[in-house]
Design a protein around this nucleic acid. Sequence first.
DNA 1: AATTAGCACTCGTTAAGGTTGAGTGCTAAC
DNA 2: GTTAGCACTCAACCTTAACGAGTGCTAATT
Lengths: 341, 341
Amino acid sequence: MLTERQRMILNAIVDDYIRSAEPIGSRSISKRGDVGFSPATIRNEMSDLEELGFLEQPHTSAGRIPSHKGYRYYVDHLVRHGTLDAHELETVKLFFAEKVQEMEEVIQHTANMLSGLTNYTSIVLGPEVFTNTLKHLQIIPLNDKTAVAIIVTNTGHVENKTVAIPPGLPMNEIEKVVNLLNARLQGVPLLQFKSKLYTEVAGELNKYAVGYHELLNMVESVLENDEKDRIFLGGTTNMLTQPEFKDVDKVKNILDLLEQTPVLFKLVTSSPTGLQIKIGSENSLAAMNDCSLITATYSYDDQPLGTIGILGPTRMEYAKVIRLLEHLSANMEVLLSRWYK
Amino acid sequence: MLTERQRMILNAIVDDYIRSAEPIGSRSISKRGDVGFSPATIRNEMSDLEELGFLEQPHTSAGRIPSHKGYRYYVDHLVRHGTLDAHELETVKLFFAEKVQEMEEVIQHTANMLSGLTNYTSIVLGPEVFTNTLKHLQIIPLNDKTAVAIIVTNTGHVENKTVAIPPGLPMNEIEKVVNLLNARLQGVPLLQFKSKLYTEVAGELNKYAVGYHELLNMVESVLENDEKDRIFLGGTTNMLTQPEFKDVDKVKNILDLLEQTPVLFKLVTSSPTGLQIKIGSENSLAAMNDCSLITATYSYDDQPLGTIGILGPTRMEYAKVIRLLEHLSANMEVLLSRWYK
DNA sequence: AATTAGCACTCGTTAAGGTTGAGTGCTAAC
DNA sequence: GTTAGCACTCAACCTTAACGAGTGCTAATT
């Protein structure tokens, strides 16, 4: 579709624009070592590239900037992934050398490191609790009306919720049920927890007190508040350092969006396994028209666990971000396997 | 110190400036119904007020704006607290009518409501876990090296931490110790937990396995990660709507600060019981020179539990914020007493 | 046929000058 | 003690002009 020279020029323009954030003129491209043509020739090519939709002009007498389509072509065909530089390698290495006990800590620190290394905002989706298996279930009464229900998973994750005790259900009955549940459901993936609760265990519970049905609902409800606990952000204020967002109103829209976990959740969940790049309007949220989102999934044993992502301006250092995300997701997979044994 | 007329004029200037965010001229004060003097007279008084340090002038030919000292005098002597308006009353009433199970939810929602009603940023410090008493302690082994230690308090709060199992300590020994701890320490305030752990219980544990000392350390460490879980923020992006923060660099400093929980913690902990107002440089952080922080503590049974606060520009609607904080802290005390029974 | 030099043209940016108007301080009259 | 009057200040705004980075087109060059 594009000639070799056009690709070369498009590549040069995107690269330069990512660095300078200013429209790029024909002369400055011509002066680069790697393109041996006069400004006039470059101009003709640029004009063609604009007609094809890869470039646009802020106004007649300015240089060109890449269009969304231009970025898309750049990331699809031109960008060279390369390897991490010394500083990045060192930071990542140090990070993964640290011994941490809690998985959540790993996730949050990954988000922080990502935003620190890139100067963009990071969005990390932690493993969903449903991939874990039940380790222990417990109900601790606080008084005669309420109790705390606690679920511990094989990864050491603890979910807990304060619940109302079904009236007329004596404590020793509750204990019996909990013991039974522990005996029967230990090792069961939480994803199947709910169904097993009713199919396998419910029958056996008929001989117990009448309130057992409410009790099961109660146990089940502990797993409800999941979504928002899976989202971790890093470097949200980095958005403010980008020249394209020096306008307060624009940046407010984006920061507001970052506070709505359901939106973020959808944004970061919708990606398929592997690396995904969404440029500008490709991600359908009006507030993110000037942003690109790059995400990479991480898995254990071929089962996707979560996503790490970087949100930045469309004028993003794609090469750097891509290689960082790939490197980090691979490292995370190794590290997290510890919890999944 | 100030004449009645000076107080009247200062009050008018602060009020008007809070509303308009523009320097106030003598003519506009004179035209207000409540001050029956000509612009010239007002000018003379303004000049005096400036000399006394209550007002300042952005430049010679502009009106006056309140200085920090001016705001200070205003909140100390002039501001009338008044009562909540219908909308505020309704919102608060609805909020406290809702039945919520988790205390954390109450705290977070309070923060959201505060920022929603004021258009400023809210900082809420939740009750510290150490005021609670121990309800239940448990250690769940994940594998032969790690375990999850869980502490449930009388308020239904759950603290948990993944810890390394002291090597060579068999599981049934651990169970014995945990049972003993539960029997002995239930109902003990967590504040005294540590000392009781060593004075009362340690002696009795001598007859058990050698590793019990590490085990106690392990239990103790669960209570370490407190600070950051107590801070709740609401409406952080509201800062961006204030005209004094339309400059991205200024607002970045403040937003960065809001991400540092230790700083926030110090900021909001240092206040004595009751209402406190810190104006501009009074709160010693350079980034907050253009901000005011108003905090109110809430207690149960004369013991301070936490703080609710509003961060906004020095040009803040003091009257409104003060009455909201007072009203809310009172309501919170009633609501939270439920958890403290 | 492809490339390039040359040149007129466009248009945002910057600086300079001029006008406006809100606001002041001072003085003199009330 | 208060106020009217007036000269003065200065940010904000507008206009104008010069500048220059960049373009598109045409004609000459390779």
